[in-house]
Computed example of a mutant assay.
Amino acid sequence: MSHRTYTHPDVLSVGVAQGWADPETDPTKIDWAPRQARAAIAFQVIDGRPVNPCERTATRYGRNELGHWGEALAADALVSATDRTGRRWIVMVERADGHGWALPGGHVDPGETALEAAVRELAEETGLTIPGAPWQAAPPRYVPDPRASDEAWMVTVLCTARLGVGDRERFPAVVGSDDARQAAWVLADTYEVLLGYLAGAHGGRVFAAHVDMLKRHLATPEVA
């Protein structure tokens, strides 16, 4: 069992200054009741310290690379389209932090629904807006984020929108911005196809936290 204690220096400096990290360095001083009440996945607090409800990580104490103690709720946007040959494509972004290619997404802001956050993050990271799209939000799910610890972890809501069938060259343009180094339509008939396309076209890999989520979603054939 790991007893490692670690919080990345950026959490305590840049994170606090930019507002994405808790300034409190001692979790036993936090009022946990409100955080537990709004948590998407219930978790325990033992001796004043939050306990990751789904896994033990390599970092027992501290926040590793995440900003908030306990659960951080995110939303991810999975936008798909089918070309005229019946092949499925999805929008992905290359993360600027070097963790690989992921679905556009980010933290759910106070007063915002997960779906609103997914739509906002999609626009911020790719420039893509799809008014009137038939969005669907899945139940919250824990994601095995490599930045997590036993005391700070991520839960996300996968929000999906299918754009139907069209000419590949006429798919809406996407351009990486904000937290995304670049954005692209990625061939994704299956998860294995997605891996091969990312590696061949971009020399890229899938963000570890999104592997299982993408495997599960892409196991279901696209319905035009």
Rank of each mutant, 00 (worst) to 15 (best):
V91Y: 00
V93I: 14
A96W: 03
A96D: 15
D97Y: 08
D97P: 05
G98T: 13
G98V: 06
H99G: 10
H99P: 06
L103Y: 01
L103K: 01
P104A: 11
P104Y: 09
P104E: 00
G105A: 13
G105S: 07
G106Y: 02
G106P: 08
G106D: 03
H107P: 04
H107S: 11
H107A: 08
V108S: 02
V108A: 11
V108P: 01
P110V: 09
P110R: 09
G111S: 06
E112Y: 06
A114M: 06
L115W: 00
A117Q: 06
A117N: 02
A118W: 04
E121V: 02
E121H: 13
E121T: 07
E121R: 05
L122D: 09
E125D: 04
E125V: 14
E125G: 01
E125S: 14
G127L: 04
L128V: 14
T129K: 15
T129R: 13
I130Q: 10
P131N: 10
G132F: 10
A133H: 03
W135Q: 15
Q136H: 13
A137F: 12
A138I: 06
P139F: 04
P140L: 01
P140K: 07
R141H: 11
V143D: 01
P144C: 14
D145R: 07
D145K: 02
D145L: 02
S149F: 08
D150P: 13
A152Q: 03
A152K: 04
W153R: 15
V155I: 09
T156H: 07
V157S: 07
V157P: 00
T160H: 13
A161P: 02
A161W: 06
A161V: 12
R162M: 02
R162Y: 05
V165G: 03
V165F: 02
V165A: 13
G166D: 06
D167L: 15
R170H: 14
A173S: 12
A173M: 04
V174W: 04
V174C: 14
V175F: 08
G176L: 01
S177K: 13
D178M: 07
D179M: 03
A180V: 12
A180T: 07
A180D: 03
Q182H: 12
Q182I: 08
W185S: 08
W185R: 11
V186W: 02
V186M: 00
V186C: 12
L187V: 01
L187Y: 01
A188R: 02
A188H: 15
A188W: 10
E192L: 10
V193T: 15
L194V: 12
L194C: 08
L195T: 05
L195D: 11
G196I: 10
G196P: 05
Y197D: 14
A199N: 11
G200R: 07
A201Y: 00
A201I: 04
A201Q: 09
G203C: 13
R205S: 11
R205M: 05
V206G: 06
F207H: 12
F207V: 13
A208M: 09
